[in-house]
């Protein structure tokens, strides 16, 4: 846990890949998006969606990894669900009249919906689960190397209250 913010990080290593989720406090998320052109009501929608700063890194996998967030699963309250795709958020922002420049910032600040990492490559971005504040869930991340699927699992991840 970060002693300054109280935010917790959840991390796992599997098959040469590191995955970490760090809680983002709603204030942090709100501040970021309001500064980039969201109005407060719109920023609040995302800030309350259980957002994590997510890092996925190919440290030493036996080849280039490919992943799509649509293959990842959230297990919450006895059910398995998908992560809300970034496109859904963008559709919502468009309907709410969020300015184009703000939507552009949103799109690039998200963890990529799909990506490939050679050994040493990585990304960092925001990932929203859409779960209520304080929820606890398990995340199953999946990636492939030469058509073989691998998994990494984070158990009992907690959304900020």
């Amino acid at each position: 846990m970060d002693p300054q913010t109280g935010a917790s990080t959840f991390e796992t290593q599997a098959h040469g890949v590191t995955l970490s989720l760090t809680q983002l406090l709603p204030d942090q998320v709100r501040a970021f998006y309001v500064a980039r052109g969201f109005d407060l009501a719109d920023a609040n929608v995302f800030a309350e969606a259980c957002v994590f700063m997510t890092v996925l890194r190919n440290d030493a996998a036996p080849g280039e990894i490919d992943f799509r967030l649509t293959d990842w699963e959230v297990r919450y309250d006895g059910a398995t669900r998908s992560l809300p795709p970034p496109e859904n958020w963008l559709t919502q922002w468009s309907a709410r009249g969020v300015p184009d420049a703000a939507m552009l910032a949103f799109r690039w600040a998200q963890f990529p919906a799909e990506q490939s990492y050679a050994p040493g490559e990585w990304n960092q971005g925001m990932l929203a689960t859409g779960l209520p504040p304080g929820s606890r869930f398990d995340l199953i991340a999946r990636w492939t190397i030469a058509d073989q699927t691998y998994e990494g699992r984070l158990d009992d991840v907690r959304c900020t209250d």
């Binding site: 970060d2 990080t9 700063m53």
Partner: peptide, 8 residues
């Protein structure tokens, strides 16, 4: 700082 959160 968000990028750095972990142990701070």
């Amino acid at each position: 700082t968000v990028g750095a959160v972990g142990t701070g």
